[in-house]
Nucleic acid binder design. Sequence first.
DNA 1: CAGTATCCAGGGTGATACTG
DNA 2: CAGTATCACCCTGGATACTG
Lengths: 133, 133
Amino acid sequence: MATKTAAERRDEARRVFDAYFAECPSRKLLDTLSDKWVTLLLTALSQGPRRYSDLSRRVAGVSQKMLTQTLRGLERDGLVSRTLTPSVPVRVDYALTPLGESLMPLVAAIKSWAEAHMEDVEAARDRYDAANA
Amino acid sequence: MATKTAAERRDEARRVFDAYFAECPSRKLLDTLSDKWVTLLLTALSQGPRRYSDLSRRVAGVSQKMLTQTLRGLERDGLVSRTLTPSVPVRVDYALTPLGESLMPLVAAIKSWAEAHMEDVEAARDRYDAANA
DNA sequence: CAGTATCCAGGGTGATACTG
DNA sequence: CAGTATCACCCTGGATACTG
């Protein structure tokens, strides 16, 4: 079993790195925030509790699958609460938890930098593309 | 040509949404930051200029392809500068631009929130998983 | 109303090999 | 040293259909 030792060692190194990497709190946060629907839902919920169908309408373009999946993730992370009212038909309300609300200033900071500087980024892109035509 | 009108309308709606979505500055920023290697490289470069091979060593785990690809993207976005010294062998230095540096406080803010609250997120996850065993 | 289940295509990532 | 080129895999995420 001496064959493939080199490849195995590389794999091992990568697993170690990936494990370390996955442990990084900032990485986890970025992974969450960068999800296509997370910030959209968080922003929608920042204005108050919303029902499932409200969200699917407000966040136009989201599929049922992704809406449910994203909400489940946010609930699991303790950022959003899910309240079920067993009426007929059922009613489910989603709302930001305090933890979720504590995240909003950061979302605002991101928005702020983006609005202040993304134009520069665009311009840099155009310059780069023009230079490398 | 009346068939498939409903499906076509949905597609159209999605295209419109995607286009709008892609225009959002915050989204673009998040797309950039959430790239697996971007923050790692930015952080590495925040301590001063680095050569290509330095970066590949410092940011262990990155493949040549992704290192080059990510650096090209950052250069295109005007966040990083690339300086080629035509010696033998060639030498290439990468450094943060002022625009790139202006992004670092935001990266720090993300790190800060993550370090302050990701533990709560972890705890929430454990609770959720335990409840839904 | 608020989901769940299944299928499937496309893009992003890494491994590998080669070059000025 | 600092890349470029090609290929193959996996996983995300949308479409669709069904349910308490």
